[in-house]
Amino acid sequence: MGEILLENIRTYSYHGCLKEETAIGSDYRVDLTVKADLKRSAESDNLIDTVDYVLLNRIVKEEMAIPSKLLEHVAQRILNRIFEASDMVRKAKITVSKINPPIGGDVQQVSVRMGQSKK
């Protein structure tokens, strides 16, 4: 078993419960870890034998482009898409962070972290 990490994926997205958040948007950060058996790809050196991190990045960007009220919702959509797209992924963990959230205080970011295993 091994891990593939995509760290600090930056997007400008339109998530939130306030009208201003969905109209103006803000900066987001996504960190993703997937667990898979990487022994075969380590030996073969073939992309077909691993989890394609270009595909993972595209899934994150596509789902982050769809507005949600809650970070939990967009995080779950990303996890669902990852498991649909790759039979090799056994577990995944995602953190979605809203940078400088409008919560009436000096807060760098608010994050939601979720994990899921293959059923």
Score class of each variant (00 low, 15 high):
66 I>G: 10
55 L>R: 13
24 I>R: 08
35 K>R: 15
30 V>N: 05
10 R>K: 15
29 R>V: 15
23 A>M: 02
54 V>Q: 02
24 I>C: 05
27 D>V: 01
35 K>H: 12
75 A>G: 05
75 A>M: 01
33 T>P: 07
60 V>F: 07
73 H>M: 12
30 V>P: 01
71 L>H: 11
56 L>I: 09
58 R>G: 09
46 N>C: 10
42 A>F: 06
69 K>N: 06
12 Y>Q: 11
9 I>Q: 04
39 K>E: 06
33 T>A: 13
9 I>Y: 02
22 T>G: 00
73 H>S: 15
28 Y>V: 11
31 D>C: 15
57 N>Q: 11
33 T>L: 13
61 K>F: 00
80 N>H: 04
38 L>W: 03
51 V>P: 02
78 I>M: 12
72 E>L: 08
60 V>M: 11
79 L>H: 07
23 A>R: 00
63 E>S: 15
54 V>T: 06
15 H>W: 12
63 E>C: 13
73 H>F: 13
47 L>V: 10
24 I>G: 05
42 A>P: 04
22 T>S: 03
70 L>K: 06
72 E>M: 11
65 A>W: 10
27 D>Y: 05
51 V>T: 00
60 V>K: 03
43 E>R: 14
51 V>N: 00
18 L>F: 02
48 I>P: 00
68 S>D: 11
48 I>L: 04
65 A>D: 14
45 D>C: 08
24 I>S: 11
73 H>I: 06
29 R>Y: 03
43 E>A: 08
15 H>K: 14
72 E>G: 14
71 L>C: 14
62 E>M: 15
74 V>L: 02
72 E>N: 09
66 I>V: 15
52 D>I: 15
62 E>G: 12
20 E>W: 05
26 S>C: 08
9 I>V: 15
44 S>V: 09
37 D>Y: 01
45 D>F: 07
46 N>T: 05
22 T>A: 04
45 D>W: 09
19 K>P: 11
81 R>G: 09
57 N>G: 13
78 I>T: 04
12 Y>L: 13
65 A>Q: 12
22 T>F: 00
61 K>A: 00
67 P>C: 07
67 P>I: 01
69 K>H: 07
15 H>L: 12
36 A>K: 05
62 E>K: 15
69 K>T: 02
72 E>P: 13
36 A>W: 06
79 L>I: 08
57 N>P: 03
19 K>G: 00
73 H>W: 14
28 Y>F: 14
18 L>E: 10
47 L>I: 07
43 E>G: 06
